[in-house]
Nucleic acid binder design. Structure first.
Lengths: 191, 191
DNA sequence: CGTCTATTTGAATGTACTCAAAAGCGGTGG
DNA sequence: CCACCGCTTTTGAGTACATTCAAATAGACG
């Protein structure tokens, strides 16, 4: 598997010399997953933060009644993990599964901690990654609080048009926090 | 104003020597705000990330119809800003106002950028701060998607009991994404 | 090609909102 | 320190948005 994409992702925020790049990529474990296979199951220890090289994955939370809430979709060039359980090394609350055949690279918590020590620039890199993740999540909270389901659906299509095409309506509904039946009604109305 | 609290906050994640601490505190601007005064108004350029020393502040978004959505409450020992507009130096979407008389310390974007260069440990510090902020926001999203208003209200009281006592129900309602009238109904039912 | 799941449709229901008006409470000025 | 004014909270009736359940249809994967 090529490290081209992940190195280009890193180079958006920090510059690595050759040794640093070699060290960084030596910590990565590549995994190919088929459709519906899971990267992480709820209840398992969340060992990795993962980078999506190809395909698309989905992180979701399932409540006691079995209802799914999609936390995020991860397309190529995105980082994904159950951050809470990764950082605190707890059993995962989320399941992360491949929506279509995908290739991901994993970075273990213990290796990331080493990386921070050996190449402190990565503190900066992940500072920026987490800063952006926080911003996105905060904007989502504002939308959840102040918009109707229909407005959120239209915004989702505008913001993530490629994701909207690749995932099922059921999955979009669970991202928006509505039922698939109601999403179907919304789609008939406007579009 | 004393730098005791903010230095203790920083020392939770990184160790500063005396010169570093002096340099850091030299960048801070202390402000005392009375009840209902604003630290940041929607539309103004968001210049600062702010640390709450005393009191309690509230960040909220107001939509076109005037409906408020409370993004977060900031109590003593918390960092608060409109992260999106701070990072990208845009006009703020949020207003941040004091719920009661408060003391805050401001760190300008340009000074923070300098701080990252001069004392790179602060990359680590804010990496951890933003990581935790992201985790909290993600947990909130899960709750918004999978819980009823009543469950979210009970969780809010369990998680932030001191905030729940200091702010109005109207403000709590706008944090939960419900109307004050409906919150009143919920309170009568159970408690 | 068959099976399994996603999507659509509709009826009945529930959760939360809007509007309006009364009651309560707290901050501010006198 | 008290009283008033304005905002918060309560209460209720009517309404709207979204859910649940069920069944039919469509579509996708092996």
């Amino acid at each position: 598997m090529s490290f081209e994409l992940i190195l280009s992702n890193v180079s958006k925020h920090i510059q690595l010399d050759k040794d640093e790049a070699t060290y960084f990529t030596s910590l990565l474990k590549t995994e190919s997953v088929s459709r519906k296979a899971t990267l992480l199951k709820a209840g398992e220890l969340c060992k990795n933060i993962s980078f999506v090289c190809e395909g698309i994955v989905r992180a979701y939370y399932q409540d006691r009644e079995g209802k799914e809430a999609t936390i995020m979709f991860g397309v190529a060039d995105w980082w994904i993990t159950d951050m809470n359980c990764f950082v605190n090394q707890l059993p995962s609350m989320m399941t992360i599964e491949a929506v279509e055949p995908s290739v991901v690279m994993h970075l273990q918590k213990s290796d990331l901690d080493l990386l921070y020590l050996k190449v402190p620039k990565f503190e900066r890199f992940f500072r920026i990654i987490f800063q952006n993740a926080y911003i996105r999540e905060q904007l989502r909270t504002i939308q959840n609080l102040s918009l109707t389901a229909e407005e959120r659906y239209l915004n989702f299509n505008r913001k993530y048009p490629q994701v909207a095409r690749q995932v099922t309506q059921k999955q979009i509904a669970s991202y928006l926090g509505i039922t698939p039946e109601f999403l179907s009604v919304l789609r008939k109305k406007k579009n």
